[in-house]
Amino acid sequence: MVKDNSSYWQDNLRIIMKCLIIWFVVSYGFGLVLVEPLNTIKLGGYKLGFWFAQQGSIVTFVALVFWYSFKMNQLDKKYGVEE
C-alpha cells in the first residue's frame, strides 16, 4: 500500500493547478479578455489575440494534457504507486 498518500495527492494537485493556470491564461486570458491589446500584434496574417482564440489555445491544450501525463508518470514512480 501507499505510505504517504496525502503528499502524493498534494503533488498531483500542484501539477493540476499549474496546468489549469496555463489553460486559463491562454484561453480566457489571451483569447477573450486580453484579445484587443494582443490583436495589435500580428503573427503573419493572424492578429495575435484572434490566433490564440482559434488556434493557439487548442495547441496549448494538447501540450498540457501530454505534459500532465508525463509528470504524473514520474510522480507515480517517485512514490512507488504505479499499477
Binding site: 501539477i15 493540476i16 496546468c19 489549469l20 489553460w23 484561453s27 483569447g31 477573450l32 484579445v35 484572434f50 482564440a53 482559434q54 489555445s57 487548442i58 491544450f61 498540457l64 494534457v65 500532465y68 501525463s69
Partner: peptide
Amino acid sequence: GYGGSVFLMGWTGGYVILAMC
C-alpha cells in the same frame, strides 16, 4: 468570425479538465 471561438475553445478545453480532474 471571432465570436465562433467559443465553440473552438469550449469543445476542446473540456478535455484538459477531463484528463486531469
